[in-house]
């Protein structure tokens, strides 16, 4: 008894079902999803990211931030994402249409970053946190990203305006200063651009919270 051809067809057919169901159909349903224009305020959401933030997204990808940080807020009542203040509403498909690489993440070794730009708008905080997380979050296990910064001798003109404010054990040697590199600036621009809380028909923000 030789039934190779039947086996062959069966093997291809079974995978074809989910290929159609989980790849082609969703692509049809969501592949052409566009921005939403609010009829009252004419605000367009999600907005296109500025060039610097877009380059920062490439660093976010390259540095592998996604392995410890998610970018998705689960619905209210499912997990504590909203109670923890990680977002005012759940995230939906439309939130991600501007992302070149969608980095939802599967692990929360660190907190969710969907709305980090809203939760922590201060660039100086981000620089110090990236330089050494222990400065801003003692007990964190995030690795220090010293390689994103330059340690320089303070020049004739005195301390640079963008030098990090560092104290105690974290301070550089005397006469030196820590300056964010171009990459750090772009990465922080990206982090500060992370805001997924626009009001959408499929995911309305609760009324009392909309200003």
């Amino acid at each position: 008894m030789s039934y190779g051809p039947l086996l062959f067809l069966g093997i291809l057919f079974t995978l074809a079902t989910s290929w159609v169901g989980l790849i082609l159909l969703p692509h049809r349903q969501m592949g052409a999803l566009g921005q939403h224009t609010d009829t009252n305020t004419a605000a367009i959401y999600p907005a296109v990211r500025a060039g610097e933030a877009q380059q920062g997204a490439e660093h976010y990808r390259s540095l592998g931030c996604v392995y410890c940080h998610t970018q998705q807020v689960r619905p209210e009542g499912y997990g504590s994402d909203i109670e923890r203040g990680w977002g005012r509403r759940r995230t939906v498909s439309r939130d991600y249409i501007q992302d070149k690489t969608v980095m939802l993440g599967t692990m929360r070794t660190g907190p969710d970053l969907t709305n980090i730009g809203e939760r922590q708008a201060d660039a100086a905080w981000h620089y110090r946190h990236l330089y050494n997380p222990q400065i801003t979050s003692p007990g964190s296990i995030m690795p220090p990203h010293g390689f994103l910064f330059d340690v320089r001798v303070i020049g004739q003109a005195g301390r640079s305006t963008n030098a990090l404010v560092l104290e105690g054990t974290f301070a550089p040697p005397a006469g030196h200063e820590v300056i964010p590199s171009r990459r750090a600036e772009q990465l922080v621009a990206y982090l500060r651009s992370l805001k997924s809380s626009g009001d959408l028909p499929e995911a309305p923000v609760k009324k009392e919270e909309v200003k």
Partner: peptide, 29 residues
Amino acid sequence: FWSLALFYNWNGMHHLVGGPLPSWMITVS
């Protein structure tokens, strides 16, 4: 063999439970 072939390839979306995808996909998985 055949039940594995039929069902396993539909499982993937269970990695996205609670995520920003249509519920039908996650439920199917």
